Simulated assay, not measured.
Amino acid sequence: MALMSIIDLKPGAKLGKDVYTPLGGLLLPKGKVILPRDLDILRAFLIQTVDIDSNQTKQNLPSPSQDSKKQEIEQKREEDAQFEQIVRSAELTSFDEEYDKMIILIKKAFNEAGAFDIPIFELRTQLEILIIHIKKYQVLYFVPSSIKKEEYMYHNGVLTALTSYLLAQWCKLPSKDWVQVALAGLLHNIGNSKIDQSLIMSPNLLSDVEEEEVRKHTTYGYNILKQVKAINDGVRLTALQHHEKIDGSGYPLKLVGDQIHIYARIVAVADIFHAMTLDKPYKESQSPYLVLEQILLESFGKLDPKIVQIFIRRATQFHQGTIVRLSDERIGEIIFTDRDHPTRPMVSVEGTIVNLVAQRQLYIKELIQK
Rank of each mutant, 00 (worst) to 15 (best):
V235Q: 03
V235F: 01
R236T: 13
R236P: 08
R236M: 14
L237Y: 09
T238H: 05
T238S: 09
A239G: 04
A239N: 03
A239M: 05
L240W: 06
L240D: 04
L240T: 06
L240Y: 10
L240G: 07
Q241N: 10
H242T: 08
E244N: 08
E244T: 09
K245V: 11
K245E: 14
K245I: 07
G248W: 15
G248Q: 15
G248E: 12
G248F: 15
G248N: 13
G248K: 15
S249T: 14
S249H: 08
G250L: 00
G250D: 03
G250E: 02
Y251L: 12
Y251C: 13
Y251N: 12
P252L: 04
P252D: 05
L253W: 09
L253Q: 14
L253S: 08
L253C: 07
L253K: 15
K254L: 04
K254G: 05
K254D: 06
L255E: 02
V256N: 02
V256L: 05
G257P: 00
G257Y: 01
D258C: 01
D258V: 12
D258Y: 06
D258F: 06
Q259K: 05
Q259W: 00
Q259N: 02
I260T: 00
I262V: 10
Y263M: 01
Y263N: 06
A264D: 01
A264G: 01
A264I: 04
A264Q: 00
R265S: 02
I266G: 02
I266H: 00
V267R: 05
A268Y: 02
A268I: 06
A268Q: 10
V269Y: 07
V269N: 11
A270V: 15
A270W: 10
A270F: 07
D271Q: 12
D271G: 03
I272K: 13
F273A: 03
F273E: 06
F273R: 05
F273T: 03
H274V: 07
A275I: 06
A275C: 10
M276C: 09
M276V: 08
M276G: 02
T277I: 07
T277P: 06
T277H: 05
T277V: 12
L278I: 13
L278R: 08
K280V: 12
K280G: 12
K280P: 11
K280Y: 09
K280Q: 15
K280F: 12
P281D: 09
P281Y: 08
P281K: 11
K283Q: 14
K283G: 08
K283S: 14
E284S: 15
E284I: 13
S285T: 14
S285R: 15
Q286F: 09
Q286D: 09
Q286K: 15
Q286Y: 06
S287I: 00
S287Y: 00
S287K: 00
P288C: 09
P288K: 03
Y289G: 01
Y289S: 04
L290D: 12
L290G: 14
L290S: 15
L290I: 10
V291D: 01
V291L: 03
E293T: 10
E293Y: 05
E293V: 09
E293I: 11
E293N: 07
I295C: 07
L297C: 11
L297K: 15
E298S: 10
E298P: 03
E298A: 09
E298I: 10
S299P: 07
F300Y: 11
F300I: 13
G301S: 04
G301Q: 08
G301T: 10
K302W: 06
K302E: 07
L303T: 07
L303M: 04
L303Y: 14
